[in-house]
Write a protein that binds this DNA or RNA. Structure first.
Length: 576
DNA sequence: ACAGCCAAAA
């Protein structure tokens, strides 16, 4: 027995496992040593071996599998590419003679989180209450986490509220859950509550959730405070935390400070550190710096991965470095990289924006995989910019086939027709939109004034200063018109906007936020706005004019990148 | 003595 356990410790491949198993079988002891078979199962079900077919076969050879045997398989399946199988095994187990324990529930719940299986999670929830595990803090945390990950933040909050005692992991799970679930303000509020009410000291996991919330909100003040705390609490010994700090500064509009944090790291950099910084430069349109860093990472012994290439390509795209981008893309194969659909998407965007539509299309045709919705949207956007009707129609057909119901796709196609005075076709697209009940993602934006985050949705009238904001917008309109501004009215948008007039062009959330910034900050202070979608043509023009007429620097972070408006010009050089 | 919370991506 002792000898067997020694052998077991040395098993590091499936061959070894098989040899040991064969040995046990030949001496007729296979069924006799549960502790050995448990270890064997755990070895082959988990990394680095991870051979689940073999694990399940081995399991089926057992005459009376114990709870721990079951758990080994459920755990392995939960971490595998088919987490739903873990749930199936859990269900089979709960019907078998063997008792499910708290760990089985925990593994099955994690599987639900990965498979985004809400109803299964709820079933396991009610079962674990019946089994009497309802007071297990670890299990409750898992439960909270599953609900948050499947998007049921209300349920997660309820699990949290009902906990009589909460340790730091419970708070961390909810802070992270809210941040990941697009409720960054709530995440930050909870983060504050944690220290104030419970006197808990945020750890490296807590600050990750909080920093992510700041990144989303563009909450520089909050981010700075958390950064100070991180340094004081010596949490900056964790690479993962440093990476999140870099990302936070970059997304709050301060690449320089992101780079400063990158340079002054007290711990070693990893692949993600480099990727985050390259992406940061890309977002800010600093193409050359991004490419320099991409070169430098290789020299520092960190091998670029698919994300590094994507970030560098993205940098070329935002900076208009067409030749560099194409060269980089073509160099991928030579470096043993297989471009994925995102790399193709970026290079198609790069060529499309430069007006090289035919080349872009050639690349689409050469792709070894099916183009996705985003890629066709990219091509459609470029076709609109350059007025290529055939290409636009082709992209639209593909979008319809892929079941895309985004409002933007229809609007773009209709704009192409409108530009060619093909009004019958414009009408046809309009009809199709009505028939299909196209979806419109609501636009919203944030602005931080004196450390307070203000949120605006399109056509928002709920802000306390709503009156002043709207009169400021009227004033802006007058002044920019005097400069020759003509609204970039969009026929289709106007047409479908009839029902909700609030969504009209002139009250886009970024305009509201900038107007609020103008009335609530001192002259000369830069105004920074964060938006969830891409900035529209009209807003882009208006921002440029405001920056000139009001002599204000305006920084807008949209879904894709930063736009820095100054003296009537934008840092993207209208290339976006 | 097999559990929970964890950074980047067109």
């Amino acid at each position: 027995m002792a000898k067997l356990e020694l052998l077991l410790q040395k098993c590091d491949s499936l061959t070894h496992i098989k040899q040991l198993q064969a040995h046990l079988l030949t001496i007729g002891r296979f069924q006799l040593y549960p502790s050995i078979t448990i270890k064997l199962l755990e070895l082959c079900a988990l990394p680095p071996i991870t051979n689940l077919p073999y694990a399940t076969t081995l399991f089926h050879q057992l005459q009376s599998p114990s709870t721990r045997h079951w758990n080994a398989v459920v755990r392995g399946l939960a971490q595998s590419l088919q987490p739903t199988q873990a749930v199936t095994w859990y269900a089979t187990m709960s019907r078998s003679s063997q008792k499910v324990d708290a760990l089985t529930c925990s593994f099955a719940l994690k599987a639900c989180a990965r498979a985004l299986a809400l109803s299964e999670a709820m079933q396991i929830h009610s079962q674990l209450l019946r089994f009497g595990f309802g007071r297990d803090v670890l299990l409750r945390t898992t439960l909270l986490d599953v609900y948050a990950k499947v998007g049921k933040l209300g349920f997660a909050q309820k699990v949290f509220d009902e906990m009589p005692e909460r340790d730091i992991a419970c708070w961390n799970a909810l802070v992270a859950g809210l941040a990941q679930g697009s409720q960054p303000s709530e995440a930050l509020a909870l983060f504050e509550r944690m220290a104030e009410e419970e006197g808990l000291k945020p750890n490296e996991v807590t600050v990750l959730g909080a920093l992510s919330a700041c990144s989303q909100l563009g909450a520089l003040r909050g981010g700075e405070r958390i950064h100070t705390y991180i340094v004081n609490a010596k949490l900056d010994t964790h690479v993962i935390v440093c990476n999140a700090v870099i990302d936070m500064y970059a997304k709050c509009g301060f690449v320089d400070r992101a780079y400063e944090a990158f340079e002054n790291m007290r711990c070693g950099k990893n692949l993600i550190t480099w990727n985050t910084m390259i992406m940061a430069f890309a977002m800010h349109g600093d193409g050359c710096k991004a490419l320099e860093l991409f070169e430098k990472m290789g020299k520092n012994g960190v091998c670029p991965d698919a994300v590094s290439y994507l970030a560098a390509l993205c940098a070329c795209n935002h900076a208009g470095l067409v030749e560099d981008g194409v060269k980089l893309f073509n160099s991928m194969a030579g470096s043993g990289m297989v471009p994925n659909v995102k790399h193709y998407g970026t290079v198609v965007d790069l060529l499309g924006r430069a007006g090289r539509l035919q080349e872009a299309y050639e690349i689409v045709k050469s792709m070894p995989m099916f183009p996705d919705v985003v890629l066709w949207q990219t091509l459609l956007g470029a076709s609109k910019t350059y007025g290529n009707v055939e290409m636009a129609e082709m992209a639209s057909r593909n979008l319809v086939e892929l079941g895309s119901e985004g409002c933007g796709d229809f609007v773009l196609l209709s704009n192409v027709y409108a530009a060619h005075n093909r009004w019958d076709d414009v009408g046809r697209v309009r009809e199709a939109m009505k028939r299909r009940d196209v979806k419109k993602i609501p636009g919203f934006g944030y602005i931080e004034v004196e450390g307070v985050i203000h949120k605006f949705v399109n056509g928002d009238q709920n802000h306390v200063n709503s009156h002043e904001i709207y009169s400021k917008l009227d004033e802006i309109k007058c002044r920019i018109k005097a400069y020759g501004y003509v609204a970039k009215t969009n026929h289709v948008l106007h047409d479908i906007g009839e029902e909700d007039k609030e969504n009209a062009l002139s009250y886009h959330c970024e305009k509201l936020a900038v107007a609020f910034g103008l009335i609530s900050t001192d002259e000369g202070t830069p105004i920074q706005v964060i938006k969830n979608l891409r900035i529209c043509d009209d807003c882009h023009v208006v921002m440029k004019l405001i920056s000139e007429i009001y002599n204000r620097e305006i920084i807008v972070r949209d879904r894709a990148r930063f736009h820095r408006f100054q003296d009537g010009l934008c840092s993207c050089r209208d290339y976006w």
